[in-house]
Amino acid sequence: MKLHSLWYLLGQGIKNVWVNQLLSIASVGVLTVCFLLIGVATLFSYNLQSFAHGVEKKNEVVVFVGDGMAPSVAVNLKKIKNVASFVFVSKETALKEQLSQLDEGGALFEELGQNNPLPDSYRVALHDVDIVNKTIKKIGTITGVEKVNSPTEVAKVITTIKNTVSYAGVFIVGFLLLVSLFIIATTIEMTIYNRRREINIMKFVGASNAFIRVPFVVEGMVLGIVSAFLAYAVLHLGYVYMFDVMAKFEIDVLPMIRENIVPFAELGTYLLAGFLCSGPIIGMFGSVFFVRKHLKV
């Protein structure tokens, strides 16, 4: 194909986006909605996971140690890989903390001061909360450790939720992808069906298949790119707006949620990249595939 023909066809593809306004708007609309669904599902599942992870982190393992054994236990704790960090809590501090929750705590502390029933302890944060049970067993074998308190039941539930969400997220996004592909294919097919007369005429005037296809491919790519940016913009604005609104309310869990919000920038780039890869490709292959049907004259 000659260069000036190629320029003409490229221009024609871009022009067609404008000439067939209604069909273009319909295609961009469908593609954008599909991208939005996928984007929302992705953002939601990421945030839920991030939230669950935040809750998990709050639940440290508490290791009680025998009198005077603290320094040697610390040395051994450092050797365990899954231990991220630990803080020493002396029996005095522990007692103070506990009593401060009571009204007459101050007085009681004075009284119990000499006879503290609480042991020294370490509050241990883990790298990987999923293998908490293994780590607890390991810590239990350290000499000087008297008792290990595992994270609360809540944390366990949250871990389950997190895992479920990550599987469900993959499943839902995959499902949406399939549905989207189906809807998009139908839209492209309808768009091109509407223009089969044009395609037929071009064939009868002597246009080669490539000559007819190129503008459609360009058109499909342009619509794909427009949809990708549109979906990205809507997601970004919606995301920021939602958390702005959230900031205005004061509910107990909100600070916890806010702390764990995944910043849009962290995911947005990936989403945009995904949209920009798939949009034009979907547009391109859809065009090639469905124009083909009408080229056989």
Partner: peptide
């Protein structure tokens, strides 16, 4: 013009 363009 289209009939000409297809011929290059």
């Amino acid at each position: 013009a289209f009939a000409l363009r297809v011929t290059g």
